[in-house]
């Protein structure tokens, strides 16, 4: 019971993590939709975009880095290798910067809470030994709080999807009820990708770090967004 409550606490949007300020491409997609014309970017487009994010970015990149970080524990050198792989696999600069800033914000909370390992992680970021991408911070600290790989993947995946719909509400793309309808329809997809096995290497060997992502439209939208004079979100 306590473990589940810890998971709920970490998943709760009231847990200070900085995530509310990142649309992760949704604001850029909305602007691109207006520019392209037609019906613009509405609920249907949002639903498709989040599915693309989950299947083609989160599942093969953020989720893999998250689980590998969970397995790495407090091994800073190993975390640095995973961190560098995220940096290399995240082509759009606003997404890279966003992931690092979001990681720093989450780390700020855990450091002040005294979560085991948080201060070491923060010092490693300060010393430039780590970049501090969000999945690294999540995987390491949520493990320190006793959460297993499955729970960690569920929380991070849920936050990735819920973060997009929350941003969409604030952008006026969908209403709060419609947003939940969209999220409900996405949950089976999230359950499928979050539950994909990530085979472990033989004992004594480190898992190979292979991150894959392909979301070109969202990345173009995010890159345009980064140059926009008017924007509500960090990316």
């Amino acid at each position: 019971m306590l473990e589940n409550l810890v998971a709920l606490q970490q998943a709760d949007s009231t847990f200070p993590s900085g995530s509310f300020a990142f649309s992760n491409g949704i604001e850029g997609l909305a602007a691109l939709g207006e520019r392209i014309g037609g019906e613009g970017f509405g609920g249907e487009g949002l639903s498709r975009a989040i599915e693309v994010v989950l299947r083609h970015r989160w599942a093969g990149s953020d989720r893999v880095a998250l689980i590998l970080s969970h397995r790495a524990g407090n091994d800073i050198d190993r975390l640095a290798a995973i961190d560098a792989a995220i940096e290399a696999a995240t082509i759009a600069e606003p997404m890279r910067t966003g992931s690092r800033r979001n990681g720093a914000a989450l780390l700020a909370t855990h450091s002040r809470l005294g979560t085991p390992g948080a201060e070491d992680l923060r010092q490693a970021v300060r010393d430039r030994r780590l970049l501090g991408h969000l999945p690294i911070v999540q995987g390491t600290l949520w493990r320190a709080l006793g959460l297993g790989e499955g729970a960690v993947a569920q929380i991070a995946g849920y936050q990735a999807a819920a973060g997009c719909v929350t941003a969409a509400i604030r952008l006026g793309i969908v209403g709060a009820i419609e947003a939940q309808r969209i999220l409900t329809a996405l949950l089976p997809i999230l359950a499928e990708v979050a539950g994909r096995p990530l085979p472990e290497s033989d004992p004594g060997e480190e898992d190979e770090i292979v991150l894959t992502a392909f979301t070109p439209l969202i990345e173009i939208a995010a890159a345009r967004h980064a140059r926009a004079d008017l924007r509500l979100f960090a990316n």
Binding site: L2, E3, N4, V6, A7, L8, Q9, S111, R112, L113, G114, T115, P116, E119, A144, L145, G146, L147, G148, E149, G150, A151, Q154
Partner: peptide, 19 residues
């Protein structure tokens, strides 16, 4: 949500942050 481990399950007690 069932996939959790049983080691160090809870948040640690709060301590004063290093200001």
């Amino acid at each position: 949500m069932t996939s959790v481990t049983t080691t160090s399950p809870a948040m640690p007690p709060a301590r004063s942050p290093a200001r």
